[in-house]
């Protein structure tokens, strides 16, 4: 099946835009934003230039793992409308170019992070890339409906990397930020999978709606949302963030819960699409609140 991705005609001529597409720029923006929140929320000082370098490395590292993911998944990408125009399944790029591009950027981003910012952050970045490529892409994605639950950890690391870039270590707050993204990921992806179940089934990816059915997926979305929303309030409850973060986070969380319950009750694609769209906004706003809290309230807490 994998060879289906290789076009019959020889001579690939990828454009610069194809290489940029390999980096999954849309995913990158969320990763950079959560990384920035970790950087700003961390106590201590980092030179703005080094903060910029850290974010660049997080972005490039995330993009690089995306490129390796596209190299490995080129066969299944060819079978889904959402992904079939990517450079590899569309036959615009030689697979080995994509792999070389991804590996080079992975090594480069970790090296620059280590030499320029902090080796603790570099270690976490390397762990993130390795987790996404080896644990999620190669091991879990095609084998278990728990693929995105455990694989979601890769997307949860950036705030921790940003924090470590400033402090050189990891404490409770970055662990909570990690946990928030980790528990946000399943309801986010399962909402998408609910109305794309047919496509995942076609290419043999065992997403939860394909394996366990839509009813079970809706139940799991509600369960994870019930864990997620209280978790988002933990920084406030533990005194690590003020009401500037906590009060709006509570309101946003209630809206998210309402969306999850609507998915469970209405059982429509429209409800799932609504939750998927809101989930992205929700995470952006949560981390914007983390940033706002760090800038406005943390100085008064002596952080």
């Amino acid at each position: 099946m994998r060879e289906a991705a290789v076009p019959g005609a020889g001579g690939f001529s990828p454009s610069v835009a194809d290489f940029i597409a390999l980096l999954k720029p849309r995913v990158m923006s969320l990763v950079v934003f959560t990384g920035l929140a970790g950087l700003i929320a961390a106590p201590g000082h980092i030179h703005p230039v080094l903060a910029g370098v850290a974010l660049l490395c997080i972005a490039i590292g995330a993009g690089a793992s995306g490129a390796i993911n596209m190299w490995y998944d080129r066969d299944i990408d060819a079978g889904m409308t959402r992904t079939q125009d990517r450079p590899l399944p569309a036959g615009r790029m030689d697979p080995s170019s994509a792999l070389g591009f991804g590996v080079t950027l992975s090594v480069g981003s970790v090296t620059v992070m280590g030499l320029g910012v902090h080796w603790a952050a570099a270690g976490l970045l390397a762990l993130t890339i390795a987790f996404y490529v080896f644990v999620y892409t190669m091991w879990l994605k095609r084998r278990t409906p728990q693929n995105i639950v455990i694989g979601g950890a890769a997307g949860a690391f950036p705030p921790m990397i940003g924090w470590a870039a400033v402090t050189g270590d990891v404490s409770l707050m970055p662990v909570l930020l990690f946990a928030i993204v980790f528990f946000w990921t399943p309801p986010h992806f399962w909402a998408l999978a609910l109305y794309k179940a047919g496509e995942y089934a076609k290419v043999g990816v065992p997403m939860l709606p394909v394996v366990a059915g839509k009813a079970e997926t809706r139940r799991q979305i509600v369960i994870y949302s019930l864990i997620l929303v209280p978790l988002t309030l933990a920084p406030w409850a533990l005194g690590l963030a003020s009401a500037i973060y906590g009060a709006p986070a509570a309101v946003l969380g209630l809206v998210f819960l309402a969306g999850a319950l609507r998915v469970a009750v209405a059982k429509t694609d429209a409800a799932a699409k609504g939750l998927f769209a809101y989930s992205i906004l929700y995470l952006f706003l949560l981390f914007a609140l983390v940033i706002a809290d760090a800038l406005l309230a943390a100085p008064s807490r002596g952080l």
């Binding site: 454009s15 230039v49 660049l56 030499l115 320029g116």
Partner: peptide, 24 residues
């Protein structure tokens, strides 16, 4: 045209790296 685009992108990336290491 595409090859020229890739070459220019490579030049920009290399120059960017030089500037990045200098600034760091």
């Amino acid at each position: 045209k595409k090859r020229r685009g890739r070459n220019i992108a490579m030049l920009v990336a290399l120059a960017g790296l030089v500037v990045l290491f200098y600034v760091i």
